[in-house]
């Protein structure tokens, strides 16, 4: 599968000269399968550019929302396939015991917060509760599990031909463990990430910032490293960068990582594309990331 980052920022879009390398758009990741299936993970502001890049004759696209915080939704109203005919847009979101997905999405996608009510969107829109058990989307098997973040929030494990992508953009496993990293079976997100070929994981804070934000639902950079080590992943890509973190700070944070990590550490930069293959091959590594 081919994974492209269209938005890597957390919480709030952060455009400006100080964020051009890591990007200012909020969470949005494209996953393309070998048979052409297109999955989109979250609908942050990166969705606008991704939507504009999709071919007009694409018959179907599936958007998997990990949760409904605004930084994961804000691109939906600017997603071109929703405003034309020809592409069926399927949106999957975590289930709620009280309201269906349409009702919850419409809280943002309706006046006065948005000019057009969701029901007036002219494209073909199909809404689904995200199953909390494995299901197939094209050539992918998708397995969602709830993880530690305020409000129902899913982590996604996406497999294709033995290759596994784990996506945990908003995740605070340290909150759920008295001695993090602790026992795997008592660690939030472990089942999603175990043995993944690529883990995209929340790394919003520095360790010092995290101390002031315990319970806000995000990880410090060292927590992301510790979680990736515990889960035995092959590659870790940092994600959900704090809106106040400029490129130079993020570079400096990456440089603090130990050199003897048992996985490859990749900076989550907007525009990066990664080929994710199974854990086989002459050198045991997948292709290097490249700028799209």
């Amino acid at each position: 599968m081919r994974v492209t980052l269209w938005g890597t920022r957390g919480s709030l879009p952060s455009a400006g000269p100080e964020t051009v390398r890591y990007g200012g758009n909020t969470a949005c990741v494209e996953v393309r399968g070998c048979a052409g299936t297109v999955l989109i993970l979250d609908a942050g502001t990166g969705l606008r550019r991704l939507g504009a890049a999709l071919p007009g004759d694409l018959p179907r696209v599936d958007i998997l929302l990990t949760h409904l915080h605004l930084d994961h939704l804000q691109g939906l109203g600017f997603f071109p396939p929703l405003f034309r005919e020809g592409t069926a847009v399927h949106i999957w979101g975590p289930p709620s015991t009280t309201q269906d997905l349409r009702t919850r999405l419409a809280r943002y996608l309706s006046p006065p917060l948005f000019p057009m009510p969701l029901r007036d969107v002219p494209g073909q829109l199909v809404l689904h509760d995200l199953p909390l058990a494995p299901f197939a989307l094209g050539e992918f098997e998708v397995d969602a599990d709830l993880v530690c973040h305020p409000g129902p929030t899913a982590g996604l494990r996406i497999a294709e031909d033995g290759a596994v992508l784990a996506y945990l953009p908003d995740h605070e496993p340290a909150l759920c463990s008295r001695h993090f990293p602790d026992l795997p079976e008592w660690t939030s997100g472990y089942g999603v990430a175990a043995g993944a070929d690529l883990l995209i994981h929340d790394a919003q804070y520095t360790a010092e910032e995290y101390a002031q934000h315990v319970g806000w639902g995000h990880s410090a950079f060292p927590h992301a490293l510790a979680f990736a080590r515990l889960a035995g992943v092959r590659r870790l890509m940092t994600f959900h960068h704090d809106p106040a973190h400029a490129d130079d700070l993020l570079d400096a944070l990456m440089a603090t990582a130990p050199r003897d990590l048992p996985f490859e550490l990749l900076p989550g930069r907007e525009g990066t594309t990664v080929e994710v293959g199974p854990r086989v091959g002459a050198d045991g590594q997948g292709e290097a990331p490249r700028q799209a």
Binding site: D145, L146, V147, C148, C176, S177, P184, E185, W186, T187, S188, G189, Y190, G191, A194
Partner: peptide
């Protein structure tokens, strides 16, 4: 190794 559901992790 199987992970417990998040609700049990949070309750513990």
């Amino acid at each position: 190794m199987k992970q417990h559901p998040i609700e049990l992790i949070l309750m513990r």
